[in-house]
Design a protein around this nucleic acid. Structure first.
Lengths: 214, 214
DNA sequence: CGTAGCACTGTACCTCGGTACAATACCGCT
DNA sequence: AGCGGTATTGTACCGAGGTACAGTGCTACG
């Protein structure tokens, strides 16, 4: 049976959790725990210092991490997800809710409760619509044909940098940046940097594909 | 006790589900079900015609909808979420997994299993980083000060349309589009349409705020 | 009725983005 | 050595994006 480890500031809610989950363990300092076992379930308050690092560490070791918060925010949710967390829930949630979070997470799911998912979907939903970017199969294939340098340039352009700024970043001439971009536009069948940014935002993961890098 | 309703093409997996959940009801045509009760749990195969509409309808009536698919895709996941679905899972998932999905969903959570959430987070994660767009509090306040027309222009620009295209869309001159955009840039403290698009993609929900429209 | 805010338009001007044409240099492969 | 792909840079050109300055018309508000 996997362990349940709760981490929160001294006194915060831990008594309530202890009553609901007597077999769980409790602590106020994740740093004190050197290693967790795969399939362990860690509950970490986002008010603890270094919670992101601990979330990353525990996740890397194979444990499931659920982040508990007192104030839900979109930024925190995303940070949590990128650190490898699998669940995000309000610290005052009922034990019943915590139990279902645990069930989902330990079956490989994600628990992103509350209205936050709505905002998340709203943002991402926009991406799906982008009329300016038809996202033909050709474009997705084109992504794979980008060279390493072209991908680097794309990444910066998609962050809103100008040609001059990209040039400075890579210590190359603005002309070279333009050359890379022209190649990218042709491969992806788009017309300008704005459409590129939209495409990268909706298919950014393709930029990380190392299939042709080098 | 709320009902469980399974909808799939005749024969598809329903026998297996019936063994695992004897008290559930089964059908192959969601249209045949006029109304569901709040807190009912509907399982719909995405291979059924009109599954999006039925998902919307059932969600509107207060039921929880889980979409089951034979081929998981990012687009389908987003469509499902925007239709009000709360869970997305492979149709061949084990009864144990289905049970945990049900638990999460009926406690108000979302179940977005599989690696798809990874892609989703990768896309959205980019948004958080956008260095070109510092997203100061001033900018977020600025969003609220946008007029109705300015918001409309923003929405199209954020889709990748050129000034000329926006002008044609609204039957106004290109000059007027530029005027609106200049006002937007100043209010949001950004410098060009690309940064605007990034800002809208990351805070698109602010465009829908009607607080100052009119 | 005056004023303020918004939508809308025009001309002029400058910068930035993107393309065309052209060239050099490095690397790996045959 | 020759070839193909990539990275790099240059000059020139043109259109799109954005700003400055200036103006009209509408509506809501005191």
């Amino acid at each position: 049976m996997s362990r349940w480890l709760f981490f929160s500031a001294p006194g915060v809610e831990s008594a309530r959790w202890a009553r609901a989950f007597p077999s769980a363990e409790f602590g106020c300092d994740p740093s004190a725990v050197n290693a967790v076992e795969p399939a362990d379930l860690c509950w970490i308050m986002s008010s603890l210092p270094g919670w992101v690092e601990h979330t990353e560490r525990f996740s890397r070791q194979g444990a499931f991490v659920v982040v508990m918060t007192l104030v839900e925010s979109r930024e925190e949710l995303l940070t949590m997800l990128r650190a490898g967390g699998r669940g995000y829930i309000h610290a005052l949630a009922s034990p019943e809710n915590l139990a279902s979070v645990a069930t989902s997470v330990m079956h490989g799911g994600y628990w992103l409760g509350s209205a936050l998912i709505g905002e998340l979907v709203a943002s991402v939903g926009n991406l799906v619509e982008s009329e300016g970017v038809p996202r033909s199969p050709r474009q997705l294939i084109g992504f794979k044909s980008l060279t390493a340098r072209e991908r680097e340039v794309c990444a910066l352009v998609a962050k809103g940098l100008s040609n001059k700024e990209v040039a400075r970043e890579f210590s190359i001439s603005e002309r070279t940046v333009k050359a890379h971009l022209s190649a990218v536009f042709e491969k992806l069948e788009i017309r300008d940097r704005l459409q590129l940014a939209l495409l990268v935002k909706s298919h950014g993961h393709l930029l990380c594909d190392k299939s042709r890098q080098g």
